[in-house]
Amino acid sequence: MTDLVITAANVLPGAGAVTEDGLAGATITAGQAVYRDTDGTYKLADADGASALVRTARGIALNGGSAGQPIRIQKSGEITIGATLTGGVTYYLSNTAGGICPLADVGTGEYFHIVGIAKSTTVMLMSLAYSGVSG
């Protein structure tokens, strides 16, 4: 699996960003995809996670933090993801916890969850959509 190589310091909310604040339930780095656990904390989403909850990203972390620390996530709108994108390509949740990858790198047994579509080489329009279908 080839995930985006994200520079955490370059992750920034963009036009129309909708954000949400909460607490990290694990160590999280800016640019990683997260889900909201039943205890209300954010943890790393994973396309081949054990449950639909883990496989359903709620957003992308805008800052890093360890368990119990405050975190802000972006749920929709444009985001400068801190990685090199290919314009027009749709990006998905990967089987690396918190990772994001292009469709070509979603493997067998992983669930399809769209994270967003690249508008340019740096900006992604977030469009979170979990299919519930595995490859």
Rank of each mutant, 00 (worst) to 15 (best):
G59T: 11
S51C: 08
G68Y: 00
S134V: 12
L103A: 13
T38Y: 05
R55G: 04
A8S: 15
V5N: 13
L12H: 07
A61T: 08
L103G: 04
R36S: 07
G98A: 12
P70D: 08
D39H: 04
T122D: 12
A83H: 02
T80A: 13
A17C: 14
G25T: 03
K75G: 08
L44T: 02
D39R: 06
G132D: 11
I71K: 05
E110D: 15
G59H: 12
I6E: 00
A24F: 02
G116I: 00
L85E: 02
V133G: 06
T121E: 10
G31E: 02
D46V: 04
A97M: 07
I71E: 03
V123I: 15
G22K: 09
G135A: 14
M124P: 00
L85I: 08
A97W: 08
L62E: 05
Y130D: 04
P13K: 14
L85F: 04
G68T: 07
P70W: 07
D48S: 15
I114E: 00
G14D: 10
A45I: 09
I71Q: 06
T29E: 08
Q32T: 02
T7Y: 02
Q74R: 10
A61R: 04
Q74L: 10
G49K: 05
P70I: 05
K43N: 05
R36Y: 01
P70K: 12
N95M: 06
G25K: 05
V18G: 05
G16N: 06
A45G: 06
A118L: 02
A57W: 05
G25H: 02
G64V: 08
G49P: 01
G109Q: 11
E20D: 14
G14F: 09
T27H: 12
A52E: 13
A129H: 11
D46S: 10
G116W: 00
L4F: 06
A45F: 03
L44Y: 04
A26H: 05
G49T: 09
V11D: 01
L62A: 07
A104Q: 13
Y35P: 00
P102M: 07
T27N: 11
T19I: 15
T86I: 13
G16V: 00
I117Q: 10
K119S: 07
M124V: 13
G107L: 14
T2E: 10
A17Q: 12
T41E: 04
D46N: 15
T29A: 10
V11I: 08
A26W: 08
A52N: 15
S76I: 00
G99P: 03
C101V: 09
Q74E: 11
L103S: 10
V106P: 00
L125R: 04
V11Y: 03
G98M: 06
G135L: 11
G88D: 14
G116C: 10
K43R: 15
G14H: 13
A97R: 06
V106D: 00
E78T: 14
G82D: 00
G107T: 11
Y130W: 13
E20A: 13
M1Y: 13
L12D: 01
